[in-house]
Amino acid sequence: MTSSFSLGLRRLGVSLLIGASATLTGCASFYLDPATRDVSTAEMPKVAQPQPVKLNFEFQTRGAPNSRATEHLQGAVTEQIKASGMFSTLDAAPGGAILDIKLNNIPLNDGSPAAKGFVTGFSLGLVGSSVADGYECKLSYLAPGQTVPIVKLTRHAIHTTLGAANPPPGTVHVDSANEAVLKMTHAIISNALRDLAQDPAFH
């Protein structure tokens, strides 16, 4: 019973990071996983002839659409895509190119198959001292007239600790949950964009 209760609480807590981002302050601390580093605009491969694209962005929680988080991040994602210089506009005509970005939140401490398959390469802390939220970005680019998209997958994680608990080794402290989410989003998408820009099929 205790085990079941604890598992329930874990599933509850780790699924709520986004929802709590505006209010979690004080004794909770947030850290970005070091496995995924942000790619700056200067580091992004140049695209010789940027073309129009239609941007579709969606934040998901365990694969289901999360309208509130999508709305929260939509502006930042749009600005990031514009700043990348990879596309001329983000309002391609119907039937034109599509850039589809799905950012899926996968709680890593709930023992689910999705969590177990995700954790390799990430800096998980000691059990009982932190919780982690994994994020998987699936970026798909569908060129005009094409039926097979170019797909790039990248991952990231945010760790949360309470009080004086030590963070997982190598993680990068950020000041708030909202900052953690925004920086995670920028980093995970920047890696996917770089991978797309480096793909000869994209050009």
């Binding site: 604890s6 609480l9 874990r10 509850l12 807590g13 209010t23 909770a28 009982g128 001292s129 309470l162």
Partner: peptide, 13 residues
Amino acid sequence: KIIRLLTLAAGLA
């Protein structure tokens, strides 16, 4: 501690 942490997160959310 993990339960306190998660309970905090849940309550605030």
